[in-house]
């Protein structure tokens, strides 16, 4: 042990270790190395999960946002769709009415031809019923 100049004390080591510390150190370090080498093989699925974790978190976030939007839409949705049905029904009704309008017009037209027919029939009937005498009498 040297003496370092005047003021500095001897450069002796003031620290110590627990008894037998160095005797078992190499065995302990080998145990730790074995444990660390064994860990990645048994935890390969965990390793994959750890690798995919950011993507999984992002997917879960999207799913949560989808549910937050989907649930209210699903609740309000039927009301909107029933309104749509009403609109569809209106179109169907209009179609229905158009057909009926035509049908009604045709029916009127048919009625008017029937009336013409009826007038001619009435005239024939009248002509057949009136005698020549009656006609002469009326002229006078």
């Amino acid at each position: 042990m040297k003496k370092k100049k005047n003021i500095l004390p001897e450069n002796e080591n003031p620290f110590k270790t627990p008894e037998g510390y160095f005797d078992g150190f190499s065995d302990r370090i080998m145990e730790r190395i074995d444990a660390e080498n064994a860990a990645p093989e048994s935890d390969s699925s965990n390793g994959i999960i750890r690798y995919l974790r950011p993507a999984l978190i992002m997917a879960a976030s999207f799913a949560a946002i989808f549910l937050i939007i989907f649930i209210p839409v699903k609740t309000i949705g039927p009301q909107l769709s029933s309104n749509n049905n009403i609109a569809d029904n209106e179109y169907a009704l209009l179609d229905y009415l158009n057909i009926n309008e035509r049908t009604i017009i045709e029916a009127f037209e048919l009625d008017s031809t029937q009336d013409e027919y009826n007038d001619a029939a009435v005239e024939d009937y009248l002509m057949a019923s009136i005698s020549e005498y009656d006609l002469v009498e009326n002229k006078n």
Partner: peptide
């Protein structure tokens, strides 16, 4: 607080 320090007082001051 090191229980494995066994130096003299001057050694502690140096440390």
């Amino acid at each position: 607080s090191d229980e494995y320090f066994e130096g003299k007082e001057i050694q502690r001051k140096l440390q």
